[in-house]
């Protein structure tokens, strides 16, 4: 299959099933781009997510990085359009049928079933990313510090990611 078709199909699927917010798409992207196809190494995937955090705009923009890595600027464009198109289609449909789904017990129940799963798959993605790209002790310290600071909400996500990158650069020069 043509590489652009493959990219488009993968990211359309991610776009359609990324229920539960932008972060819910991260495990789906990891599964598609790292585990199933090997388009990216685990640490390249880490960079893709990190870049999505330090730039403005939604998390799903990491799809742009993946598309670029696979097939250049045209690939970036394909992946980006594919991951956002389902959002637009679904919002259009939700707008049309809002009165029919609003307040329905079943709609809420489905979301209640999906939310815990989303938390679980994000945790799984974090564990897999950590296992495959941790090489030194200082990284563990960065994980703990980043998680604690993010939970306390004192530092923005973009700053945290930039800070962890700075720690990495310092460690390179300290000749560990």
């Amino acid at each position: 299959m043509n590489i652009y078709c493959e990219l488009a199909l993968s990211f359309l699927k991610i776009g359609f099933f990324g229920f539960g917010g932008g972060f819910a798409m991260i495990p789906l992207m990891q599964s598609a781009a790292v585990h199933q196809t090997g388009w990216l190494t685990s640490s390249q995937f880490g960079a893709a997510i990190a870049l999505g955090q330090v730039t403005p705009g939604p998390v799903a923009i990491s799809a742009t990085f993946i598309g670029y890595k696979v097939a250049g600027v045209a690939g970036a464009l394909t992946a980006t359009v594919a991951i956002f198109a389902p959002s637009l289609l679904c919002m259009y449909l939700l707008e049309k049928f809002y009165l029919k789904v609003r307040g329905k017990e079943i709609t809420q129940a489905i979301m209640h079933g999906v939310l815990p799963v989303v938390a679980a798959i994000i945790l799984t993605a974090a564990i897999s990313l950590g296992r495959q790209s941790m090489h030194s002790l200082w990284q563990t310290a960065v994980i703990v510090a980043a998680a604690a600071l993010a939970i306390s909400r004192k530092v923005s996500f973009g700053l945290l990611v930039a800070g962890s990158m700075a720690v990495g650069v310092l460690m390179a020069f300290s000749g560990r």
Partner: peptide, 21 residues
Amino acid sequence: SAMEGLTAGVVGLLIAVVWDM
């Protein structure tokens, strides 16, 4: 090395996101 730092930061962030959820 910068990447290793970035990835660690992202793992930390994801843990925080899960905590919030």
